[in-house]
Design a protein around this nucleic acid. Sequence first.
DNA 1: TTCTAATTTATAATGATTCTAAAGTAGTGT
DNA 2: ACACTACTTTAGAATCATTATAAATTAGAA
Lengths: 138, 138
Amino acid sequence: MENNSIFIEKLRSSGLRPTKQRIKICKLLFDRKKTFHFTINDLSKILKNEISKKISLATIYNTVHSFKKKGYLKEISVNKDKSYFDTNTSNHHHFLDINTNELIDLKNEDVHNIKIKKRIPGKKINSIEVLVKIENSN
Amino acid sequence: MENNSIFIEKLRSSGLRPTKQRIKICKLLFDRKKTFHFTINDLSKILKNEISKKISLATIYNTVHSFKKKGYLKEISVNKDKSYFDTNTSNHHHFLDINTNELIDLKNEDVHNIKIKKRIPGKKINSIEVLVKIENSN
DNA sequence: TTCTAATTTATAATGATTCTAAAGTAGTGT
DNA sequence: ACACTACTTTAGAATCATTATAAATTAGAA
């Protein structure tokens, strides 16, 4: 119960009640060193294995969406049928391994300054996202 | 029937029978100067308006997918619930207007050379895609 | 014209996500 | 500790886009 207090505080501070389900999902998502990329399906499978009492699929959806809304998760869509969530919410880019469908973080600093020469009148740039598709070099 | 011959040839040369439906869709998609970004839903609406005899939704899906497979269309996913097809199949980037959800082409030349400083062992780069999200500058 | 394989079509099936409304729970005040 | 209320969870139903099915139609070749 020790480590949970961090997550309980995190949840409370953003107006989310620290329920058993949310704390469990917090631990699973945020108690790691490396960033974690997952689909709802991934998450639901992990929870099914790791946990004694099942968390309803609806709750998993609800929780992930509220975490996203609170800014704890970022959603990344790399292709139509795979939408990933990313525990790294900072500004950054991605590798997508087209052989394995794995998503790998690419730090902002690892992409040499991107300059966009074209401008759209009346519009300003909100963000620039780079997706580097990689494949086996065999 | 004049202009159709180009499309009939295009279809034949890639092993697709030039049916009324395919020719109509070809004309709609490829008989333009600017590149065209559309969803299946967009396309189906346009066809519904422009055409006397309805083209079945299944046919629209089939046709777009075979055009994609033949390399006449490129699929771009900018967010989970919107997958666009692009008649510009060359290597290029995009603006996404987050106010209107409109997709705008961004030529390769309009993005200053992108250098990726990180490499993944055993993998080579397949493509680099930049998505520039823009919004009203008001 | 006739034949065959490709294509179109309406409809059913699928699968992911969202909705619903009933049951359970957290936090507050007593 | 108890009661109350709003929030949360839950199972299952509803929805929506997409894909599959299988019968009818059509293109191209003989």
